[in-house]
Design a binder for these strands. Sequence first.
RNA 1: GCGCCCGUAGCUCAGUUGGAUAGAGCGGCUGGCUUCGAACCAGUAGGUCGGGGGUUCGAGUCCCUCCGGGCGCGCCA
Length: 656
Amino acid sequence: MYLDLQTRLRNTFERFIRERFNVSAPIMIEQPRRPEFGEMALPFCFELAKALKRPPRQIANEVVETIGPIQGVARLEAAGGGYINVFFDRTAFLARLAAGAEDRPAPAEGKIIVEHTNINPNKAAHIGHLRNAALGDTFVRILRSRGRQVEVQNYIDNTGVQVADAVVGFRYLENKTSDDVRRLAADPAVRFDYYCWDLYARVSRWYDEDPARLELRGRTMQEVEHGQGESARLAEVVADTIVRYHLATMYRLNVEYDLLPRESEILKLKFWDQAFALLKERGAIYLESEGKNKGCWVMPADSTGAAVEDSDAAERSPDDTKIIVRSNGTVTYVGKDIAYQLWKFGLLGRDFGYRLFHRYPGGRQLWVTAAGDEDHAAPAFGHGALVYNVIDVRQSYLQNIVALGLLALGYKEQAEKSVHFAYEMVALSPRCSKDLGIELSEEDQKRPYVEVSGRKGLGVKADDLIDQLQNRALEEVRSRHPEEPEEFHRRTARQIAIGALRYFLLKYTRATVIAFDFAEALSFEGETGPYVQYAAVRATGIFRKLGGQPDFSRLSEAALAAAVQSESGAEYWQLAVLASQTTAFAEQAMSTSEPSVLAKFAFQLAQAFNNFYHRHPILREPDPDRKLFLLWLTGYVRSQLERALDLLGVEVPEAM
RNA sequence: GCGCCCGUAGCUCAGUUGGAUAGAGCGGCUGGCUUCGAACCAGUAGGUCGGGGGUUCGAGUCCCUCCGGGCGCGCCA
């Protein structure tokens, strides 16, 4: 609705100024600062002033006088130094909203692959992982709402060093066999992921005490990669068990996946060998014959991961290359990542096998890669037209190298369509570290925040935080609704806790470091998820009291006109027109890859509704036509709040 | 050293490819529950947008420079 009108305006003005002034200019549309300035403001006359060498206000006047009527627009007004303000035909706009008109997404162009979460399966998830998943999942929801076909992948590095470290811990620090660990993992009294969290920190300290012990890690890693023997069996138990924990944790936050591509299959199916052959064949990498990188296969790249000027390989500085294959013949992490990225675009010439891993209660199927025991009825994975990798900003260098690898292979388009969806880390505020009982060095105490470290066991575990939020919410819900059954208390507390958590993680822009603080994260007041949920719940409450939805087909155009022209008409109108912008904000969140704009919008709409709710006692409205209108408006705002929250992955409770 | 990011109210943050009088939340102060349930609403105080130059009709936004902070740049992942 709103978006359609915006598009219509843009096209109309573009055509008009091209015909009248013989210039083409992009038409920016912005939100006026104040409601008296109308619903949309166009500042393009300022731009035109330069080309035409005339004062902007004069151009604005001319445009307003000569452009003629535009469908859906009541009037145009030249304002300020040269703005054109657009005033909608309010009654017509509301009538179309009431008739259920909606903005349609533009036709989609191929599959989008979004990779997110990607937690090393050797310990419990922490708050940093939650930010990744919340951002990734919200972005996916937004893409899907705009008609895009999306495949969500959660990459599992089940043969990497971190898993090897857990194996070292069980095998050499605790003298456990794979059967012992299997029993431990199956013991309902043990939180296996928490157990591993501590074990991982212990192993890291154990290495620090005697660096010679790192040799054991190297050997273990090779055994794990090889896929056979006791270490490999142990690794499988650890990784598989912890992946299940991670999926359960993420499911608490309403996050689901389509596919778990695993490193073990990348190895078994020789993805790297294929990529290596391609890279050599096309000259993307070469064997270094001298210098410190002698014997390594390297790719030209500068220290930011950007391409370097063509020059003779012999003269190139070792600093302008990135090692892809080590001198001992083993491949680096980026090498495998290049292979994986090629597969995502369907460029590798090789595919995984798949088998069904899990069926979510809502019906979505989660598949995992397989080799040997695959199910041939699996859907077609990969072959993306556009790929988003949701990884924190510290991975920029490696993400650039991956894209550069594609470019060096001649896949310019796919290199451009490899998007690093970057975000800043979640760190701990000094106060938070103190709350956790963490001793900080003097140096760390002076810092604005402390980095989370899995190695040190320094961080807030995801499930601990969710539990805390849930307990707080539970207390609150119980005291407010003592008459309701325990089942209601638990369900509602969960919805509120997740609403608070997801909103908290999404309200910051991606470039902002979140210095985690319990007081802020645990708040249910002010700019929080529960505030927005509460606004929607209040609207529900009105209809509950009323005993159901009235028949809105009885809402006449005359009643709409009377309402917007009434004393409070401007208020009603502003609320309605704000609510009608849900899709426009979703579109903006998508095009800027910035979910926070949608979070901010949801809060703004909730705020507007709460104000309206406070000022207008709807059920006591004496005029039946007006009452029907107010009920319609309430229902409409509620539906839009629910939509916005759904895109943020937040549910609306029945009552709060 | 090179590259990227950040610096806006006491605190935490928004600020729409440069636009109209810089906005929220928290905290402070004042007021509002006989109600569609106050997880709420209203009012109020609080700003040389890190400093300095520049670009232009117009700069929190772009450029340069300085200051302060963070993160990258490994035969780790």
